[in-house]
Design a protein around this nucleic acid. Structure first.
Lengths: 211, 211
DNA sequence: ATTTTTTTGTGAATTTTTTCTCAAATGGAG
DNA sequence: CTCCATTTGAGAAAAAATTCACAAAAAAAT
């Protein structure tokens, strides 16, 4: 039963995990999978999977399970990743370059179509098949290149300025890799990717083993 | 009042955000901050902050707020990041190199003391002040170098093998950047950092604006 | 010295998320 | 064709997380 409740962020995140695992299963030639088996592989509870899927519709067959290929297609469809999303990177340091060279992104439907930096020494340099462009030209380029997602990989003290350029360009979604919070209007979605947050979680857990 | 309940993972993650923001405030010369102000800056509810802190003790002064410098010290103490954590990177591709060159890590108490890869052409190569070592030697090196955290930055099909080496070396905490799940014993903590999960969340949100 | 204002810490209420349970559907075996 | 073993979908129950609301404490104002 499809509901129009709002879907929790954690559900979407788990969806991405299920999708990843389903694609591995498909590669291994599996045609059908039960929620129990998928749950084991993903390290979650099986009714969690069924509940998550129920937000979007009914995809399984009772007594059988889920057809892997079909479920992949359905998930991609309702997550909005059957199409290609054009992205811009702002801040071409080590991390920015690593992302630019990361081939899997295009396989997954994300294409980096613009590389921006405000350092005059970098502007004009080629990285892969892109030329680094001045961040001030982001607004003008965003339209031409149909950019929908901005990726911030600047140092923390430049992140807010990068965010401002992205917002001004009319882009409504940002992934921020800079280890700092940014302020944006309510209609812009920001997602934070912070390596040190993950390390902190681990060191806390290690410090508290057995407590 | 300090309780010995188990502390939710989300609390630890928010703690890392509060810490980040507190350090920015300290740099700006702020001496005191209220939960309301900190909450605004971090984009959360103010009683959320007070509840989170209550897991660890009482740090504020009624009618005043929190002393920024003291609170930073307390948080670092109970998160276990007053000391330095030695880490190993397994998989020296673009991402691995970007992390190796990422200076802020050591400022935050994480030191990368070993760079491992199984590609014979890479072994012996220098990256920064480390030499790339064969992954099979991880076990032997882990003791010498007192490695506590393993960072996987291999391609997905190598991630499980990397995880096996890390587990065999007696390391109990893993950050996995490879876009795949890994299987480890129950006493090993794994945290996943997956860029495409974040992009998927954004494309889903963009596809459903206003719905 | 007393009142007012501010702000923490925490129990209670609320909301959200997860897990449990089981009827209903499906395919295969006898 | 009927029975048995599976497995989904979804309501109910349980658990967890968040927010509310306010007494208690501290500082500032009168």
């Amino acid at each position: 039963m499809l509901k129009k409740e709002k879907i929790p962020k954690v559900t979407i995140q788990r969806m991405a995990v299920y999708l990843q695992m389903l694609e591995e299963l498909e590669e291994e030639g599996e045609e059908v999978v039960s929620s129990t088996r998928l749950a084991e592989l993903c390290g979650v509870n099986s009714s969690q999977i069924r509940k998550d899927l129920a937000y979007f519709g009914e995809f399984g067959v009772r007594g059988v399970g889920y057809y892997v290929r079909d479920l992949i297609a359905s998930i991609k469809h309702f997550l909005g990743i059957q199409k290609v999303w054009n992205c811009a990177i702002v801040g071409i340091g080590n991390l920015g370059r690593a992302i630019l060279r990361y081939k899997d992104l295009s396989k997954k439907g994300y294409k980096i179509v613009g590389a921006f930096d405000c350092d005059p020494f970098k502007i004009g340099e080629r990285v892969g098949d892109l030329e680094i462009i001045c961040t001030r030209r982001l607004k003008e380029k965003a339209k031409d290149l149909n950019i929908k997602i901005g990726i911030i990989t600047t140092p923390p003290n430049r992140a807010q300025r990068a965010a401002n350029h992205i917002v001004e360009a009319g882009i409504k979604a940002i992934v921020n890799f800079a280890p700092t919070r940014i302020q944006v209007p309510d209609d812009v979605i920001v997602d934070y990717v912070d390596f040190s947050t993950h390390l902190i979680y681990l060191s806390f857990s290690l410090s508290n083993l057995g407590k």
